[in-house]
């Protein structure tokens, strides 16, 4: 069973629908016990890092997730969920992440050429390294991004980036822990194919 972690940040409608569409059994999980029982885990999230990190700590959900990562359970963080896998973020003050992937989250604005808008909203092309998540995904496929912050200092774990004036970290993987800055559940067939790939990992 794929556990979609619900910790009160964002709604899971699209993810539930996506897994339904690709014929995978996915359940919403809300307790550490349910996190432990899941074969695979999705950590979604929208909004601000600090607030989400705090909510994930309620009832020890964060510890259950970290334990699952150590046990080898495949975990996919999406958007803010991916950002929380890192060591820290400086969004509205310095916040500690889950530390499952080395690197940090920082604002894109000061790093971008002046004419580019923040947040990056829309479809942008992926430049992918070979990884099971991208099996069958054509070169240059576009996926949907909505974000103002991005991961840096994480080159060894970066499996895809996108060009937005600068190379922006688009996907990361460290053993069984994966993250996408984009929204596979909003990226059409390409995104659904990636979710299918994740289910087979």
């Amino acid at each position: 069973m794929i556990g979609l972690i619900d910790y009160g940040v964002g709604n899971l409608f699209s993810l539930v629908s996506s897994f339904g569409m690709i014929g995978e059994e996915a359940d919403i999980v809300r307790t550490p016990e349910e996190v432990r029982r899941a074969d695979k885990l999705i950590l979604p999230g929208v909004g601000a890092f600090g607030d989400a990190r705090q909510k994930l700590a309620v009832n020890g959900m964060d510890e259950a997730l970290t334990e699952a990562a150590r046990r080898g359970t495949p975990i996919l963080g999406i958007c803010l969920g991916m950002q929380m896998l890192f060591e820290s973020s400086d969004e509205f003050g310095l916040h500690e992440g889950l530390g499952l992937i080395p690197g940090r989250i920082t604002a894109m604005q000061p790093r971008l050429p002046g004419n580019l808008k923040v947040p990056q909203i829309g479809w942008n092309a992926l430049i992918c390294e070979p990884h099971p998540l991208f099996q069958g995904i054509p070169e240059g496929a576009c996926v949907y991004f909505v974000h103002s912050y991005s991961a840096v200092d994480c080159d060894p774990w970066t499996i895809a980036h996108t060009e937005y004036g600068i190379p922006v970290t688009a996907a990361v993987a460290r053993d069984n822990v994966l993250g996408t800055q984009f929204h596979p559940e909003k990226s059409g067939r390409i995104g659904l194919a990636m979710l299918s790939n994740f289910c087979r990992m």
Binding site: F13, S17, S18, M21, Y144, K186, S187, G188, R189, L192
Partner: peptide, 8 residues
């Protein structure tokens, strides 16, 4: 509609 389309 939302449960059958996977774009924003």
């Amino acid at each position: 509609a939302a449960s059958t389309i996977f774009i924003p």
